[in-house]
Each structure stands twice: as C-alpha cells, then as structure tokens.
Simulated assay, not measured.
Amino acid sequence: MKFKRQSVEDIHINLTPLIDCLLFILVILLLTTTFTQQSRINLSLPDAQGVPPKQYDQKIEVMVDSSGHYAVNGQALSSKETADLSTAIKQAANDRRDLMFVIAADAQATHQDVIRVMDAAGQLGFVNINISTKVPSRGY
C-alpha cells in the first residue's frame, strides 16, 4: 500500500504590511514633532508710546537696578535672594493682593532679575502686574 505524502508548503513572510505600518508611524512622528530652533536675532525693543500713567493711592513698586539689586517702595534690600524679596513684598502689601504691582527695571538689568520679581509676585498672588517704561523724548 502506497500512502500519499503530504506536500509541505514553504512558509513566506509577507513584509509589505510591516513596512506600511512603519512608514505610517514615521509620517505621524514627523508631523507631530516640533523642532525648536534657537534664534540668534538681535532685538531692538521699542519705546512705549501709549497710555499716560494712572495715579493710584497705594501701589507696590519694585525697582531693579543694573547690578540686580532690588528696592521695594524705595527701601533697598540687602541681598538679591528671592526669599528676601518675597518677604519685603509681603510686608509692603499688608495681605492685600489687589494693589497695583509695578516693576521698574533699569535698561541694563538682566532678564533673570526681572523674571525673579515677576515670579515672586505671581507666587504671592498678585494679578495686576505692570512694567514701567519711559516715554521717548521727541526730537522737535
């Protein structure tokens, strides 16, 4: 008796669906990725032209000089620490967070020093924060 042998088919792996899936993932990755590019542009900031300043009965004015020293309502602080700045602002505010908060920074003050004042004011709960500017003189 002669039995019929079963024929064994070759196993084929179809890579086309795998390649399609990988290309689809690659396209999605490229579309959703943001590429940050550091700008190297020199900025010349404009002078403020607009609204004349309003007079407020009470306000907190923090001054930042060119070397990074702070003064709160005319009282100079002994250090540049954020904790000392926050304490001085708290004392000047007397638990009132609705006062006008004005930052008067020297043109040569670093951005970090100004941001430190804004951060301290934000952490204390001030929402009405303004930065004072000078009105340029007109050359008539």
Rank of each mutant, 00 (worst) to 15 (best):
K2N: 12
R5Y: 10
V8M: 08
V8N: 11
I13H: 03
I13Y: 09
N14V: 13
L15V: 12
I19F: 14
D20Q: 09
D20S: 12
L22Y: 08
L23N: 09
L23K: 09
I25V: 13
L26T: 14
L31G: 13
L31H: 03
T33A: 12
T36Y: 08
Q38F: 03
Q38C: 00
S39H: 11
I41M: 12
N42L: 15
L45D: 03
P46Y: 04
Q49S: 11
P52L: 10
Q55M: 07
Y56K: 04
K59V: 02
V62C: 02
V64Y: 01
D65N: 15
S67D: 09
H69M: 13
Y70L: 01
A71M: 06
V72A: 01
N73Q: 03
Q75P: 00
K80S: 05
K80C: 01
E81K: 08
T82C: 00
D84W: 00
D84A: 13
T87K: 12
A88F: 06
A88G: 07
K90C: 00
A92S: 09
N94H: 15
F101W: 03
A105E: 04
D106P: 06
A107W: 06
A107T: 10
A109Y: 10
T110E: 12
H111K: 12
H111G: 04
Q112L: 08
I115C: 01
V117H: 02
M118S: 07
D119G: 02
A120Y: 00
A121L: 04
A121N: 02
V127Y: 03
V127S: 14
N128T: 09
I129K: 12
T133E: 12
T133A: 13
Y140E: 14
